[in-house]
Write a protein that binds this DNA or RNA. Sequence first.
DNA 1: GGATGGCTATACAGAGTGCCCAGTGATTTC
DNA 2: GAAATCACTGGGCACTCTGTATAGCCATCC
Lengths: 155, 155
Amino acid sequence: MGIDGLDARLIELLADEPRIGVLEASRRLGVARGTAQARLDRLRAQGVIRGFGPEVDPAALGYPVTAFATLEIKQGQGASVRTHLAGVPEVLELHTTTGHGDMLCRLVARSNADLQRVIDLVVGFEGIVRASTAIVMENPVPLRIIPLVQQAALD
Amino acid sequence: MGIDGLDARLIELLADEPRIGVLEASRRLGVARGTAQARLDRLRAQGVIRGFGPEVDPAALGYPVTAFATLEIKQGQGASVRTHLAGVPEVLELHTTTGHGDMLCRLVARSNADLQRVIDLVVGFEGIVRASTAIVMENPVPLRIIPLVQQAALD
DNA sequence: GGATGGCTATACAGAGTGCCCAGTGATTTC
DNA sequence: GAAATCACTGGGCACTCTGTATAGCCATCC
């Protein structure tokens, strides 16, 4: 059910150089093409690999500012708040959480000034009681998955 | 410098069906292959598209629990804390932020019980003064970029 | 012993890629 | 106004990869 070392190396390889294709990957892994093919098919079937969509950099699109907003929601307003936030392009992801806030969302904006507009857009909605925002200054560890893949392959 | 409607449609297309390739994409967009090729090359050169790495689902790897931890760091310990967190596979990303906490990180774990282990691992480090964790219950808006791409194409 | 599952090795047709060129229309430059 | 520049079109060519199928080998499980 889990993944083994070969799966992990395959994923690493594809993460490093996505363009190489199955054939080249099999060569580098020292296995037959059919094997690499089968492994990849299995990983996709299991849902471990969701897809190979393009990774788009918001900064390069003109949105270099990232922030996280913790939202407190009025009782029973969850559904409408979700719909509202889903309609804001600058909301890149939204989670409902335990803890003080009720929701956590990732925002981007064109500038620090523009962030104010985005926050007003997000918060200016009936159902949101309170919001606290943390602006991202640095990103020492960008979103990554390889270390976890390697960890998962060990057991 | 920015992107136009054709760029946006190309990105959407590749996000929907990454396997189609340049030729099929050009057919669907109603442009010549060379055009689609050139647009794609430009988007990659500009850094808008970083790559086409595999999207790995932590849940399918056996890590279905996600949490966000806000960390408060002792003055001057930033660098060592970063190094420490970078070494923990369950830390998927790390940001330094303004606001109350000093850092925000995304964690995954095998279970709620296992999350305790991960948090201890993260927090049990000289330099971290305080930590507050929010466990993700639902993910109404999974990480997405297409709406922002469409927005960016408008201006 | 027989069945099953994973891997190797090979083959073939179809399709896509990288790369080239010539021509066209629109916009900018002199 | 004329020339140059730029993006796009449409075509062609050699090469490679993909999808799919084959058969044989080996270890494991009943």
